[in-house]
Design a protein around this nucleic acid. Sequence first.
DNA 1: ATGATAATTTGATAATCATCAAAATATCAA
DNA 2: TTGATATTTTGATGATTATCAAATTATCAT
Lengths: 95, 95
Amino acid sequence: MRAQEVFKAISDPSRRKVLKLLRRGSKTAGELAEAFDMTKGSMSHHFNVLKAADLVRCERRGQQIVYSLNTTVFEDVASLLADLFRVDKRNGEHR
Amino acid sequence: MRAQEVFKAISDPSRRKVLKLLRRGSKTAGELAEAFDMTKGSMSHHFNVLKAADLVRCERRGQQIVYSLNTTVFEDVASLLADLFRVDKRNGEHR
DNA sequence: ATGATAATTTGATAATCATCAAAATATCAA
DNA sequence: TTGATATTTTGATGATTATCAAATTATCAT
C-alpha cells in the first residue's frame, strides 16, 4: 500500500463523502455523482484518485460502472496510523 | 477535531516524517529542520500545519521551541477512520 | 543597548489539485 | 448502423500548497 496515495485520497472531503456513501453498499458512478454538486467529469476524477489508493473497487455492469468499498485496505491504513503515533518508549524526553 | 485539517496534515510526507521523528521524544525546531533538505522557513510552515491540526504541541524553552507529539488526537483520528470504513450491515449490496 | 542565535512570518514563485466544458469511449436497444 | 445513455478522458483555468529568500520577532549573553 502507498501511504502517500491513501492519505492524499482521504484528505479531500468529497472523496471521504464518497467512501461514506459506499458504506451502505455499492453504487453506480451516476448514483454517487447525484449526491454532489459537481460535474460527472469531476466526480470521475475523484473516483480515479480513490481507485489509485485502492480504497474502492469498480466493475462494469452493462452501461454503468458499480463502485464498492475496498475494506481490506482499512487495516493497512489503521496500522499505518498507529505506527505514526506509536511513541517509542526506549528514548526519553528532550533533555 | 477537524477531520479536514488532520487529514490534510498527514497527507504530506514531510509532515509525516516530522511526526515519526517526534515519536522518540520531543525535539526543537532546529533539530527537526536538520533532518530535512529545506529551509527553516518551509519547516516552520509545516509545523504550523501540524499545530493547526493539533497533532503536535509546542513550548518555548529559552531561545528554542520544543515540539512534541500530541498523542491524544490519535484516538480521534482512529475512530474517524473506523467510521469511514464501517460497513453498514442493514442495507444490502447494490442490486 | 548591541550582537548573536533560534525560530517565525512575509511576499513571491512554481507545482499541484479541483473543477468545468467539451470530446471521446463503451454499452445497449432499435 | 444509428441513436441514446452512462461514464471517462482531455485540455484549460482558477485555487491551493510547498518552497525559497529576506525581513521580523524573541531570547540570551555581554
